[in-house]
């Protein structure tokens, strides 16, 4: 369902993305998620383990999307909007989960996992906000220079 433009070339890796602000944020999200996953595993709370594993999956898919420049190939979706909406949902979702984890914790693992989830929510909101600032809704597409780019 992809590769409708030009000959299929080998996948180029956008290593520069990893060094960009958002690349670093995404990587930090992955690390935080993994830390939360370890905590919840130690505390054996299946609900939170499931949540972190699912989120790891989603974040790694988004990261590889940018890393392999798939966002340029799969143009059916406007990926920045998908990413922002996903961040908004994930922020609310992890805020709720972390508060739940911290208020119902009985072992330290759940508490620390909850704190990591809170950190994750902060990272996600930063990620979403930075990306959202770069999106303009009424600009004719394709014009790279724009006078009113704030």
């Amino acid at each position: 369902m992809s590769a409708d433009q030009g000959p299929v070339t080998s996948m180029d890796v956008d290593a520069a993305f990893l060094k960009s602000k958002r690349g670093i944020l995404k990587a930090a999200e992955m690390v935080t998620l993994f830390a939360a996953f370890v905590c919840f595993t130690v505390a054996s709370r299946p609900k939170y383990i499931t949540a972190t594993v699912l989120e790891l999956l989603i974040t790694s898919l988004l990261l590889s999307l940018y890393l392999f420049k798939l966002n340029k190939r799969l143009t059916f979706f406007f990926w920045p909007l998908v990413d922002v909406c996903n961040s908004v949902f994930a922020v609310v979702y992890f805020l709720v989960l972390s508060l739940l984890a911290m208020t119902t914790h009985t072992v330290t693992g759940t508490l620390v996992g909850g704190i990591f989830s809170l950190v994750l929510a902060a990272l996600l909101s930063a990620d979403g906000y930075i990306l959202f600032r770069n999106i303009t809704f009424n600009q004719p597409g394709g014009q790279s220079q724009s006078p009113d780019n704030q």
Partner: peptide, 19 residues
């Protein structure tokens, strides 16, 4: 929901652009 929202927004603002 994320995909639907993104799609709907893109539909509503076809000129959406990301720097």
């Amino acid at each position: 929901l994320t995909f639907i929202t993104a799609f709907a927004l893109h539909y509503r603002y076809p000129d959406v652009f990301c720097y």
